[in-house]
Simulated assay, not measured.
Amino acid sequence: MSSTVRFGFTGDVMLGRQVDRRQQSRSADAVWGDLLGRLQSLDGLFINLECCLSTRGQPWRRTYRPFHFRANPTWAIPALERAGVDCASLANNHALDYGVRALCDTLDHLDRGDIASPGGGRTMRAAREPSHVFIEGMNVAVISFTDNTPEYAADSDTPGISHTVFDLENEPCRKILGEALTAAQSAEPDLLVASLHWGPNMVTKPPDAFRAVGHWLIERGVDLVHGHSAHIFQGIEIHEGCPILYDVGDFVDDYAVDDDLRNDRGFLFELQTDREGSLRALRLLPIEIRDCAVHRAGSTAADWSRDRIRELSKPFGTEFERQEDELILPLESRCGGRTTTDS
């Protein structure tokens, strides 16, 4: 048995529209392209699910929504299972694109597939509850929140997502996140992840407020911040030995590609730990989205992504090593099992 445990973290997984249509005529695992074997080799896999998994419901019309994303669970759940997805965060701006019925279907389908779904629930309390995923004898706790689409927020008796602003000047933000951390740590997890869908699209750098929240979370026990929403990857910062992935970009979708920002290029982020939760390394495998599927990046795309993340991470003092196609970020920290401090 290996002493190293490998956890994969991806950008947005959007399985609707053209992806859903393409999947009607190809195998369920085709959406993972030539990356399937690498995904299956991981001990755990964590994604942001950027769509509903349902054939029911109606497009959200209470407020203006330019896009509505959903996928047929008949193929989508087997596809997630084939890749070995353990946790699909739902706190994002597409979980209610087809209303409460479709969100509840999504929760039910993920539950039957034994896939945790933090950030979404039938009540506010359920949406804010941490998920606990047990992998290789380790308890991985995940809290999930978004500052997008407040109209999708769950309340005391209405299904929805876990919503907050990400600003430490805002007392409710500190209270909401602090309570989620306390709940997660009450089970003494070996690893604690914050999956945050924050900020607008196509932004290359995190605002100061997000950096402050990222630092605050790490200082209170989070081992890795898994940020997403921008559709493009941002820089990586190491704070107190723990990685803050400010944005991990996209992983699967059918989106139009910006020729400068290249939202079709990114990474599979692999966190390596020992079995007690000590962080060892972060590995970045370049990927690119083609034909509504994710693939290992070709040489041109891989060079671009490696150069780009070095450039974006340099202001944080983060420097990478290179090992064949991948970038390596050694980590020397025992983060797992720390307790929270007062807010």
Rank of each mutant, 00 (worst) to 15 (best):
R6G: 13
G8M: 02
G8R: 04
F9H: 03
F9R: 00
G11C: 12
D12F: 07
V19W: 00
V19L: 07
D20G: 05
R21I: 07
R22L: 10
R22H: 08
S27K: 11
G33S: 09
D34R: 08
L36I: 09
L39H: 13
N48H: 07
E50N: 03
C51H: 13
L53P: 02
R56H: 15
R61A: 10
P73I: 03
P78E: 02
R82F: 13
C87Q: 06
H94W: 00
D97V: 03
D97H: 00
D97Y: 07
R101A: 11
R101P: 13
R101M: 15
L103M: 05
D105G: 02
L107K: 01
D111Y: 14
D114T: 11
A116E: 09
S117I: 05
T123Y: 07
M124D: 13
A127M: 01
R128K: 14
P130S: 08
S131T: 01
H132V: 00
F134R: 01
I135G: 04
G137S: 06
N139T: 11
V140K: 01
V140C: 02
A141W: 02
T146C: 10
N148M: 11
A154T: 01
D155H: 08
S156K: 12
S156R: 13
D157T: 06
D157Y: 12
G160T: 01
F166Q: 00
L168T: 04
R174M: 14
R174V: 12
I176K: 00
L177R: 09
E179L: 11
T182C: 15
A183K: 15
A184Y: 04
A187L: 14
P189V: 01
A194P: 01
S195Q: 07
S195W: 03
H197C: 00
G199I: 05
G199Y: 10
D208C: 08
A209M: 07
A212I: 03
H215E: 10
I218F: 06
I218E: 06
V222N: 05
D223Q: 06
L224K: 03
H226C: 03
S229E: 10
F233C: 05
Q234H: 03
G235L: 11
E237V: 04
H239Q: 02
H239G: 10
H239N: 09
H239L: 13
E240W: 11
G241K: 04
P243K: 03
I244F: 09
L245G: 02
Y246S: 03
V248C: 15
V252G: 13
V252N: 08
D253W: 15
V257R: 07
R265S: 10
F267C: 05
S278L: 06
L284K: 02
P286I: 05
V294S: 08
H295Y: 08
A297L: 13
G298W: 04
G298E: 03
G298R: 11
W304A: 12
I309L: 13
I309P: 14
I309K: 11
S313H: 09
K314G: 10
K314S: 05
F316D: 04
T318N: 09
E319A: 14
E319L: 14
E321M: 13
Q323K: 15
D325P: 14
D325F: 12
I328D: 06
P330G: 09
E332N: 09
E332G: 10
S333P: 12
R334H: 04
G336E: 00
G336P: 07
T339N: 13
T339G: 11
T340Q: 14
T341V: 15
D342R: 15
